[in-house]
Amino acid sequence: MHDTRAFKAFRAVVVTVLALFTLLPLYVMATSAMKPLRDVQGPFTWWPSTVTLEPFVDMWTTVPLARYFVNSAVVATSATLASLVVAIFAAFAVSRYRFPGRAAFTTTVLSTQMFPGVLFLLPLFIIFVNLDQSAGIQLVGTRAGLVITYLTFSLPFSIWMLAGYFDGIPRELDEAARVDGCSPMGALVRVVLPAARPGVIAVAIYGFMTAWGEVLFASVMTTDVNRTLAVGLREYSTQTNVYWNEIMAASLVVSVPVVVGFLLLQRYFVAGLTAGAVK
């Protein structure tokens, strides 16, 4: 079977247009990050008047970017791992057991996707404060508070996708493990999880990106101790100046690890989606 000429032409057009659309912002980000401040304040040029790496140096001092970076890394990784564990348990229950309340659970969890964040932003903050005052659990202004908030953001999609993935793993496999003397948990860990690896990785990627990019809750829940990159980047426009070149440099630096990580793992993401969400 070979591709027709019309299909090849169609392919060329689609690929070209979409590639340009995708690349333009990336190009602007990369070149503007190498421009002196003067360049980004004047009319746009396709290439810096002088290529400088100064924005990459200055950006660490204009805003304490390194600290925000660490915060984001800690928060996103912890939220991802925690969400993964919680989602695996829940998905296992949903996939392998039939019990009263099962439908109610899945429906409720999925419907939380519909909640407008603004509706529960302030109440959530108040609850956190009350937890602190009554139980001494400090959640506002700590990374822990962000971690538990973010883990629930990726939870619905993760549970749903993993449950789909688990459904696709033959039950005979866990039955066999059970016959061999495994507990249900043993079957989950020894049989189901290894078989669901791509699904687990897909969910982890999704959770990480959700936490890494969140802005609304971060703007309320963070102080300068636990501020994340998402909020921190705004500080480049200050009372006296907008450091566009540094914003672009910082954007580039915060994007690179996530993009590289995602692209390295994309295979598993696609595989996870194929088997889990898209059966």
Binding site: W212, S255, L263
Partner: peptide, 11 residues
């Protein structure tokens, strides 16, 4: 094509 999805939203 996948890059824009991976770039952090605010960036």
């Amino acid at each position: 094509f996948l890059v824009p999805y991976a770039v952090p939203m605010y960036a």
